[in-house]
Simulated scan of single mutants.
Amino acid sequence: MMVFWAIFSLVVGVVVAVVASVLLGRTERAASGAYNPQALSVIGSALLSSFILVTAFLIAGTWSTYNTDRQHTYDEARSATTAYWLAGKLPVADRDRVRGELTTYVNQVISRDWPAMGGHQTSDEANATLDGLRADVGAIRPADAAAEKKRADLAAALDDIYSKRLIRAADVNYDMPKVLYVALIIAAILLIGYPPLVGLTANGRNVVLLAGLGAMVGLGIFIVMALSHPYGEPLRIQPSAFRHALERFAQING
C-alpha cells in the first residue's frame, strides 16, 4: 500500500508538470523569450525557498509527532505489563480474573482500537473493558493492610493505563494546522508552473526536466501527508507494543 501511494504521488507530480509545460510553454512570451533574467531569478529562488521552507517544517513537525505517538503506544503497553505483574500478588481467584481482563483489553486494543484509530476514533468496547477492570479491582476487599497495599498498587497501575489511553485517543485526533497544507499545495503549484510561465519552451528535454521536478515535489507532498496521519495508511503505526505486551504476559505466566 505504501509503495502504491508513493508511486501515485510521483505520477501526479509528473502529470501536473507535463500538462503545465505543454499548455503554458507555448505562449507568445515563451516563444519570444522576452523576460528580465534578474527579476525572474529572484522570483524563482523565492518560490523554491518557500516550498522548501514549508515542506521542511511540515516533515520535521509530522515526523516528531509520529515518533511521539509511537512512543505513547509503548508507554501504555508497558503500563499494562506492569499491571499484569502486580495482579500476580493478589489471591488466586482475583489474580486470574484481573489477568484475564487485562489480556482481553490488550487484545481489544489490537483488534478493535487500531482499525478505529484509522478513522480518528477509539473502540468503545476496549473502553468498557478497561472501565470494568478498574471497577473490579476497586471492589476487591483485602483481608489486611498488606493486601490493601497490593490492591492499591494495582489500581494505580490501571489508572496509569487509563491516563495513557486518553493520551493515545488525543493523538488520534491531532493534526497540523490546515493552513500549512494549503501553503504547501500553493507553493508546489507555483514552483512547477513557474518555469513554463516565464518562458520555458515545451521541447522534450525541458519537459523531462520539469517532470523530474514535479516528481520530487509530489513525493515531498506524499511524505508530509503520510506522516500527518500516524494511525492511517500508508505509514500507520502498528500495534507492535501491545503484541509485545501479550508476549510478556505469557512469559510472566510461565
Rank of each mutant, 00 (worst) to 15 (best):
Q238H: 05
D153A: 15
T122H: 08
E28D: 02
K150V: 14
F222A: 04
A128M: 07
T65I: 11
L190E: 00
L48D: 00
S123R: 03
W5D: 05
P196E: 03
S228F: 07
L40P: 09
G44V: 01
K150S: 15
S9H: 14
A46F: 06
G138C: 13
S32R: 13
Y35E: 12
T55F: 14
E247D: 09
V92Y: 01
V42G: 07
G212K: 01
F249K: 11
V208K: 00
A183C: 08
L47M: 02
V198W: 07
F242P: 05
D144F: 10
A20L: 07
I223L: 07
R134M: 15
V16I: 15
A188T: 00
S111K: 13
R112K: 13
A126L: 04
R26L: 04
G13H: 03
V137L: 05
S163R: 10
L184Y: 13
A56Y: 13
A146D: 02
L133F: 14
K150E: 15
G119I: 00
L23D: 04
T62A: 06
P142W: 13
L10G: 06
R141T: 08
L90M: 09
A87P: 07
P239K: 10
I221H: 04
E125I: 07
S79I: 14
I161V: 13
L180D: 08
V106C: 00
E125K: 08
M2W: 09
R141Q: 14
P195E: 15
Y231A: 12
N173C: 10
F4G: 03
I167D: 08
R151K: 14
G218C: 10
M176S: 15
G25L: 13
L166G: 11
